[in-house]
Nucleic acid binder design. Structure first.
Lengths: 245, 245
DNA sequence: TGGGTAAAAATTGTGCACAATAATCGGGAC
DNA sequence: GTCCCGATTATTGTGCACAATTTTTACCCA
């Protein structure tokens, strides 16, 4: 008899994952968030295995996990690549973020004032870190801190499920930004975050939520999500004038 | 040199997954959604491998994927179990659904009226199916159709990312319902869905969104999410009166 | 020189065997 | 009879070898 049975319910231990894979997943996610791994980068199993000092099987598992988060694209028999969201997907991701972060801000604004000291302390500490990074013009740190700021707010909102969903969306935002960021100078989000912190610590209903909406719009508007050329360009046409000239 | 390089960008083919695993994942998800697999059920690799006629490796991969969707719990060296959300997680899932489906309803209400015929047709067709299932008292079909209804609306809203997130949340809702549903008779959601369809096809701003909010509240309120006993009961105390009697 | 084909190399995919761990069974002591 | 402990069985985890596929290289011919 091979039927699926239920001999005993699982004891609810830590839902934790073994540390080895988790470490690698985190490491790659951070590298992607920091844009050290740009979209389209080939992730060869063997290379990763050596880089992390683990077996190839381990790496395969990690890549499968990352592909579920849409942060890595798995192409059968071709391998794993850092995902490059389409413009449409990028728009969807930002819309999803607006939806979820709007809800997070609503929850935060409903918290009794003043906010708990621990929360205030962490907010201001984070603000200080962002200021430091801005002064030092440490672009990498600023990117990393920017993502962490949004996750911090999600954590304060007290819904781990929403926070988890947002974490994935933030990673994908990073990829979208890396793929479609305009070359032009872009307003740094540190200022937006400062205003958000001020609005949250104060008590002006609706302001924080509005600021967050504007902030996300601003980030998305810094991208060039117009229909890419993508289609093979007609080289002949492009160089025709040179020949003719 | 083992550095990670980018020899060629991946040609954007179908992001599709091989069919074998996808089929099994779908099959198990459906079984869970239909409550044929109740929370806590042990999913032995060997049994599943035989059931689906594939190798155990294939099954392991599938279980890993399902665990990422929080629909299966993987306990190291103990195996895979159909997930049983905690009451807190259940609440979080429903809150996340409220957030996302609220956004979906907002989008749907912004669509120009009348709605496209194809959309209307599918809505009414689905309504008919739910009616049939209700008349036939086919509980399994009703459960399945109920989930599909919400996914249908998500699809109409035109954001595949949000729809994908919602799909996962619906699966987890199913698990929450299976785990915490009250024994008492519960109002069937078919009526709620009928009203939703009516509100969507009509043009009464805000009504559909409000109905959806009420609907999700109603479903969650049918659950008993109070602090479970869970802690080992004191059997001695429980049976003391019998002994004394 | 350029294109096309075939061999070679590199990379991914998969089954298998065995190790590691946990669950079960059975026996002995009290 | 029951509790505890060791042996047996069952189940999961992992490395390895090889198959399948793709990519690169080499070569020939027009």
């Amino acid at each position: 008899m091979t039927a699926i049975s239920t001999p005993k319910p699982p004891r609810r231990t830590t839902g934790g994952r073994s540390s080895a894979e988790a470490r690698i997943v985190r490491s790659i996610r951070e590298a992607i968030a920091d844009r050290r791994l740009p979209p389209g980068t080939k992730l060869t199993e063997e290379s990763l295995a050596e880089a992390f000092g683990v077996s190839r099987e381990r790496v395969r598992k990690v890549l499968l996990l990352l592909s579920q988060r849409r942060v890595v694209t798995l192409i059968p028999n071709r391998g794993a690549f850092v995902a490059k969201p389409t413009p449409e997907e990028a728009r969807e991701v930002f819309e999803a973020r607006r939806v979820i972060e709007r809800a997070i801000m609503d929850r935060l604004e409903k918290l009794p004032r003043p906010l708990p000291p621990a929360m205030l302390e962490r907010l201001h500490h984070h603000g200080a870190l962002e200021d430091d990074a801005e002064r030092a013009a440490d672009r990498q740190a600023m990117i990393r801190l920017s993502g962490q700021f949004h996750l911090l707010l999600a954590e304060f909102a007290g819904n781990a499920t929403l926070a988890g969903i947002l974490a994935d969306l933030i990673d994908r935002s990073s990829l979208a930004i890396a793929a479609y960021e305009r070359r032009t100078a872009h307003t740094c989000s540190a200022e937006d975050h400062r205003r958000l912190i001020a609005a949250l610590t104060g008590n002006t209903p609706g302001e924080a939520a509005a600021l967050m909406a504007d902030h996300l719009d601003a980030v998305e508007n810094q991208l060039d999500l117009d229909p890419q050329p993508e289609a093979p360009v007609d080289l002949k046409a492009i160089f025709a004038m040179e020949e003719a000239g």
